[in-house]
Amino acid sequence: MDIESLKSFLAFVETGSFTRAAKQINRTQSAFSAQMRKLEQELNVSLFEKEGRNLVLSEAGLALRSHAEKLVGIHNQAIHQVKRYQDKHPFRLGCPEDYNDKILPLVIQTIQQAKPTCSIQVFSEPSVKLREWLDEGKLDAAIVTRAPDSEEGYWLASDQGVWVTSKKHAIKLHSNNQKETLPIALYQTDCKYHAAAIDGLTKRGTEYQLLACCNTSSALRAIIKQGLAVGAMGAISTCEELEVLTDMPPLPAVDIVLLTGANGHPLLDKSCIEQLTQNSETKKPTR
């Protein structure tokens, strides 16, 4: 088993998709598929199997995963020790603006403790854009939102969607907690809270005006704080000037995770990942 085949195999483990895995390692999907077939032929086992419409790891694939992670980890550690100048390469970290205040500092603190001389470049973009940049090799890691039932990435925190209004300029709701036409401000349509908010209001029969769609939490908070609209966002993104509304349509919970690039970066080695995971596990809720 050559190390590149194992890295490609772990790219599938990380993404759960031949298409995204191929993008991360800068190969065509056909070349990636051929590499996986060759690995299966070398081991004389099937590493993947169909589960509904999805492709998942077989029992043999699950067994290979732990060994592949160890072998690639040892390989990366060897590269790290021999080529220490790589530590001076900037670590490119993506993080949605929503998590800049409460999640980003914890991740950077862990990395800084592991390597005090690290150099980190932070890019604030929505999760969808950060995934694209990660696939294109523009980032070394990204803090993103995932669905609670997904196992993608390394768990950092959970967030619950909430409806909020301004404490100083609260929009007056009727006794049934509905305005005749309720002005709302939301994130862009690719946000899970956006679709859930619209769906919830529609099912409740609430008339609403979608005043604004924002791609940053600061813009969304500014509109809500001025009393121009009520909004839907994660509880992590709220601030002291905002008040959480009750008796509104339910919003989903999401997980916040760290995704890493297929090629890895010397700063984000096995020990650093383990430290991030340990710090997160102490805060992980019981489901």
Rank of each mutant, 00 (worst) to 15 (best):
T189D: 15
T15V: 00
F18Q: 02
A185I: 06
S271A: 14
G52C: 06
T277H: 08
L268N: 06
D2R: 09
L220T: 03
M36P: 13
G264H: 09
S218A: 13
E49L: 12
K83P: 01
L93T: 00
I74A: 13
S158F: 08
L43V: 00
V144Q: 02
W163C: 03
K129S: 13
I143V: 11
K102Y: 13
A219V: 02
K83D: 15
A157M: 11
I198H: 02
A219I: 01
I184K: 00
V128I: 10
A78M: 11
R65S: 09
L104H: 05
F123W: 06
A34C: 05
S58V: 09
E151M: 03
G94C: 03
S119I: 03
G261F: 12
N54W: 05
L258Y: 06
G200A: 04
A253W: 07
A31V: 07
H169Q: 10
G94M: 03
S150L: 05
I108K: 14
N176V: 02
Q77M: 12
D135W: 08
S158V: 02
K168V: 03
N215T: 10
T110M: 05
A219L: 11
M248S: 01
T206L: 10
M233D: 01
V254T: 14
G227F: 06
K102Q: 14
I143C: 02
E49S: 13
D247F: 05
N100A: 10
N76D: 15
A170C: 04
N54I: 01
I171D: 00
A195H: 11
S218Y: 04
H75C: 08
C214Q: 13
I184T: 02
A21R: 01
G264S: 06
E243Y: 08
R146W: 04
K138L: 15
I111K: 07
K38Y: 07
T28H: 13
L186M: 12
L242T: 01
K168A: 10
S46P: 00
H80C: 04
K179Q: 07
N215E: 09
H169L: 04
S66L: 05
C239G: 06
A197F: 07
D2K: 08
D149L: 13
I223E: 04
V107M: 10
Q178S: 14
P252G: 11
G137K: 12
R92L: 11
C214N: 13
S158K: 10
G261M: 13
E152F: 09
T165F: 03
V72A: 09
M36V: 02
N26A: 14
E14F: 03
L104V: 00
N176T: 04
S280P: 15
V162N: 07
V128Q: 15
H75A: 13
F48N: 03
M1N: 08
T277E: 15
A222Q: 14
W163F: 12
T206H: 11
A22G: 01
A114F: 06
V164H: 09
N263Q: 11
L251H: 07
Q160F: 07
V72W: 11
A60T: 10
N26C: 11
K270H: 10
G16C: 05
V107Y: 10
M1D: 05
L228A: 10
S5R: 08
R20S: 02
A60C: 08
W155S: 00
R204L: 10
V107A: 08
V257Y: 06
D149A: 13
R131A: 01
H67A: 08
G227S: 06
L106A: 07
G205A: 05
M248A: 08
K172T: 14
